[in-house]
């Protein structure tokens, strides 16, 4: 069945990006330094972006890189560097039998769920392996549905984000006390 859906170049791209995602995922968990872990995360995100492009979801791929790889992980790195936690941290559970067993059960459950979702149709009502949504690019389709059908959720999300930003600013201001001198008078960076 797979051979009829995808061609050889697509299969190669798929395998390569899956290998990259897997290496990134395992590396993220096993890295000894937080910065290395963050970089493995970037690797995984890139692999997923390539898979998005292969599925014809170019916009999602671009957003994946701009938002996740470009902003979220950069902020992670920023915090890691500023707080100076760039040293070795012991995060391994090896030796803790109960935890290892629990993690194993969790992984098995997720794999089983993935199998059911990928092969069955009764979770979402459609087969997960349905091929491309449309031929070529879907940016126009996406934009039309976001700005017509789903306009209200879209605007609500935007409002929510603005509220979150304003809230964060207010909280950080209040924490730092009222008698704070103006920023540019005391800047020493």
């Amino acid at each position: 069945m797979i051979a009829t859906v995808i061609s050889v170049p697509q299969l190669i791209v798929f395998i390569v990006s899956v290998v990259i995602i897997a290496i990134g995922g395992v590396g993220l968990l096993s890295a000894r330094y937080p910065v290395h872990a963050a970089l493995f995360l970037v690797m995984t995100l890139f692999g997923v972006a390539v898979l998005f492009i292969e599925e014809g979801a170019e916009f999602l791929a671009a957003v994946q890189v701009v938002v996740y790889a470009g902003a979220v992980v950069v902020l992670f790195l920023f915090v890691i560097m500023l707080l100076g936690v760039d040293r070795e941290e012991i995060t391994s559970f090896a030796g803790d039998t109960v935890r290892v067993a629990l993690a194993g059960v969790g992984v098995a459950l997720i794999l089983a769920e993935l199998f059911i979702v990928a092969t069955g149709a009764w979770v979402t009502g459609a087969h997960a392996v349905a091929g491309k949504l449309s031929a070529g690019s879907n940016i126009g389709v996406l934009a039309r549905s976001v700005f017509t059908t789903y306009l209200l959720p879209f605007e609500l999300t935007a409002a929510l984000l603005v509220i979150a930003v304003v809230g964060a600013v207010i909280l950080s201001r209040r924490m730092s006390g009222v008698a704070q001198p103006r920023a540019h008078e005391s800047r020493e960076v």
Binding site: F59, A62, V63, V65, V66, A69, G70, A71, V74
Partner: peptide, 8 residues
């Protein structure tokens, strides 16, 4: 958008 992605 690729420009934005690459600059990030």
């Amino acid at each position: 958008l690729l420009l934005l992605a690459m600059s990030s």
